[in-house]
Design a protein around this nucleic acid. Sequence first.
DNA 1: ACTTACGGGACTTCCCGTTAAT
DNA 2: ATTAACGGGAAGTCCCGTAAGT
Lengths: 206, 206, 206, 206
Amino acid sequence: MTRGTETRERILDAAQHLVLRQGFASTTVDAVLAEARSSKGAFFHHFPSKADLGKALVERYAAADAAALDELIAIGEAASDDPVDQLLALLSAFEEGIDQLLEVQPGCLFVSFIYEADLAGSETDETVAQSILHWRAGILEKLEKAAAQHPSMPPVELTTLADLLFSIFEGGFLMTRALDDPTMLRRQLAHYRHYVELIFDRPVHP
Amino acid sequence: MTRGTETRERILDAAQHLVLRQGFASTTVDAVLAEARSSKGAFFHHFPSKADLGKALVERYAAADAAALDELIAIGEAASDDPVDQLLALLSAFEEGIDQLLEVQPGCLFVSFIYEADLAGSETDETVAQSILHWRAGILEKLEKAAAQHPSMPPVELTTLADLLFSIFEGGFLMTRALDDPTMLRRQLAHYRHYVELIFDRPVHP
Amino acid sequence: MTRGTETRERILDAAQHLVLRQGFASTTVDAVLAEARSSKGAFFHHFPSKADLGKALVERYAAADAAALDELIAIGEAASDDPVDQLLALLSAFEEGIDQLLEVQPGCLFVSFIYEADLAGSETDETVAQSILHWRAGILEKLEKAAAQHPSMPPVELTTLADLLFSIFEGGFLMTRALDDPTMLRRQLAHYRHYVELIFDRPVHP
Amino acid sequence: MTRGTETRERILDAAQHLVLRQGFASTTVDAVLAEARSSKGAFFHHFPSKADLGKALVERYAAADAAALDELIAIGEAASDDPVDQLLALLSAFEEGIDQLLEVQPGCLFVSFIYEADLAGSETDETVAQSILHWRAGILEKLEKAAAQHPSMPPVELTTLADLLFSIFEGGFLMTRALDDPTMLRRQLAHYRHYVELIFDRPVHP
DNA sequence: ACTTACGGGACTTCCCGTTAAT
DNA sequence: ATTAACGGGAAGTCCCGTAAGT
């Protein structure tokens, strides 16, 4: 990694830290620079504008997010050949990784950009939507295979069930912050798993 | 309603509209005033500072939110004497009201203040937390009564199950915006109902 | 004194108190009203504008100032028939009144308007100048009569000597505030008296 | 002198010019910038706030003031070995420099900050007090040496006599402005010299 | 690749004076 | 005839982005 790239990463790290805490609009370029121990010239050398910083931030976050999902799926597929078991293993691994995640991130970067529209241009919207659809596709694939093997399951909509995982993840993050309760997110994700267990007629594991 | 109160409400309406769209930091006082068709003097007369506007905004929103929940609970209690039926009726009414809600509100005001901390002082945090706990208490009461009548239900944590409704509501709101799909929120809430139906051994209604 | 006049005086008192402390520009109408426990309507009923308040303030102060000088002169004239003794008696009485004055006033209102030109219009300038000339005339009269009786006195300029009393009074006020030493003003005025004693060949009284 | 320092000085010059004329509160940042032909950005770069400008203004003024006094003292000491002669030479030099001073400065910056308390924070108070004490120390040293050689002098308080010079200087400045008479200050300072001449039994020089 | 200094505009704050309601 | 509400504008703060220099 060259020196320039290293500075760029330091700026992105500082920016992400501040944006997660205060939102994008309230995060000034100067504050990012102070945290990254860099300077104006360096910033505008790497990013044409603050909006470009936002774009880069979301894209880097989305890439990491996709990688994390792919890893979870791989863990699931390594655990079993049965799609339901794969899904449950995936979810268990997800739950187990939450505590570590919370230490690094007090929230989800996507939310800042979803609720602060028009700040970094509409290009971030597209990136965020792609990330969500990636989760949908990954989970839905397991759900459909599982459903094919369980003809007598309750008549629930699978696409929305896939989306529900993302929803509970985001909602749980919010409640974790709002109530200042770091256990919230993990316990809520457990309910998603329980729901899946009930749908596919498995015993519920606490 | 006095003249002053009416102006104050008009300012709050305009502010809420803009904050839901752009976030609090990006919403300028001038923009609020333009939308409310009011003036700097009027604003400063009613709100000592922009932070006080934020506080008033959250408090008014929390009051309306609590009233909406209380109404849903009343609808549930009017529908049946059985706690599970009450809960399911409540959830059905919730789902049916979503479309109308989305026409008025493109998001939840709480999220803006949870993800833009320190903007309107920490007093908003407390108000938001109280709102969430109000939902927990209202749903939890029904869940516990239902659980008392269903000793053989799966071993799920009831407090978190109560919280899960709020989480899915917030997460569904986010996905509705991110994917620009107004049906998302309602379909996700239906899954919450299905989960409750499975837990209490009721047939799942799509 | 009618009720309206009483309110007006209360406003003037509050304003003088604040202006002496912060200057005229920094003294807001609202602050005056808060201190006077009155309201906007009352203020603009009595004073067409803030500038008029300034004008009224200076005029009231100048009138009180002139009355104080006249009283000092009367005290001097009651003490003796000799003009030098009259002057010295006047100065002693001045010194003795200082401590009481300082309790009420932490400074001279004129200074605020001399150093904040163009705030209350140029009409205040004229009032201030007249006040100074009144002091000059009062003291100069005594000095000239005394000089007529002391042909061998040192060749000092009498008009400026008269003015010097005002100067030391103002300068002493400033130092009293700057050094937060309430004895300063009185001790400096004693030097003026000593100077007069030396000029007219009298023994110096500490 | 670097580029930045030059701009900073230009801003300070413009600010001093305006503050002496209108006071600190009435001097707007925009007016300073217009006079200094600079910009908001430059101002905010050099001074975090208007209060800091005030602080810098007073500190620069105090430094120049101290230097001027030191130069006067040096002139006195170069003129003679006798402390009385040194003092009189110092005072004569002071008087001779007044006309030139008045062309540049229509008043004393300290007064603005003494009479507009709490505008630039209380830190200016300390700087002003130190300046006054510097004058006291410089003059008092000469007075005490002179007094040691003149045991028969009148029983006047030397510390206050030292302070009196500052007082007459400030009071004379005020009268110069109030009466619009540029000769006032010099003539009043001459009286201070005459007083010293009388105390130390020297012939009075007009 | 990076730094300091700067340009200029937008935003919150704040305040004088007026109007409307009691 | 007093008080609350309001209108409008200016002042201080703050910040994005540029430029000159190293």
